[in-house]
Each structure stands twice: as C-alpha cells, then as structure tokens.
C-alpha cells in the first residue's frame, strides 16, 4: 500500500527527473501516476532542490514508546540528526519493545508520536529528511 508520503515522494522524484508517467505493479497492486506537462524539469529541480524523505516504519503491532524514558538514551526531537540503523523509539506490545530504527542517515522531519499511539506493522511512525 502507498500512503500520502509515499505518493509525494514518488511525485517529487518524477518531477526531479522529468518523468511524465510512472507505473508500479506488484502483487495485487497497481499504481499509475501521470504528471501534466509542466515547466522544464531541470528548472524545477533548480528552484526546489530535491530533499528526499525516508519513512521509519513500525516493526510490530503495538504502542509507540519514545526513546529516553527509562532506557538510558537521550530523547529525540524533530530536527535531530540520526544514523542508519539508529534506534529512534519502540513499538511495544506488553513488555516487549520492538526497535524502530532509522532507514537512512538524516534528520527527524516529523513530530515524534505521542507515547501510546497505536501502530500496525509497516505503518510510518517517523519521517526522516535525508541528504539528497
């Protein structure tokens, strides 16, 4: 499935590279994106440098627990820099805390969810702004 952030990323990538039509097929899913003919892609890329984003996705079904409560780690806030694989928080079910990790080097671009927010497996929990 694609959420709004995924679509935005795909559309950004299409604009940046001057792609007019994009089709994605996989499993029982089909997605077709068509951009209207617009300004020259090179110009668009120049005026708005591509800032890529990456989604940190929930590793389990459970409730969000931020980093820094009782785990000896400093808490995270929007704008903080993180490294690929770094622990960003947990999705907890009972006492077990599955690690939410950074998919790429970057900075935290979204709000940190409220503790206790429920997430499904694969849901976007945090968004990172990654270096283009």
């Amino acid at each position: 499935m694609f959420d709004k952030q995924d679509l935005t990323r795909l559309l950004d990538a299409m604009r940046a590279h001057g792609v007019g039509t994009l089709e994605i097929e996989g499993g029982d899913m089909f997605l077709r994106l068509v951009l209207p003919a617009g300004p020259a892609p090179a110009a668009a890329a120049r005026t708005q440098p591509a800032t890529a984003t990456a989604a940190a996705r929930s590793p389990d079904i459970g409730r969000f627990l931020p980093r820094g409560s009782d785990d000896g780690l400093p808490a995270l806030a929007p704008g903080d820099a993180v490294r690929t694989g770094e622990l960003l928080g947990y999705v907890a079910q009972g006492a077990v805390r599955a690690a939410l990790t950074a998919p790429a080097d970057g900075t935290i671009a979204s709000q940190i969810p409220e503790p206790g927010t429920l997430f499904g497996h694969g849901d976007t929990v945090l968004t990172l702004e990654t270096k283009p």
Partner: peptide
C-alpha cells in the same frame, strides 16, 4: 533474531 533488534521493560 529480528534484524532491527528489540528491548524489554524491566522492573524498576
């Protein structure tokens, strides 16, 4: 093991 790793709530 789950590749990303995991933790556990311990008694205080």
């Amino acid at each position: 093991l789950p590749l990303a790793g995991f933790s556990l709530t311990m008694p205080a």
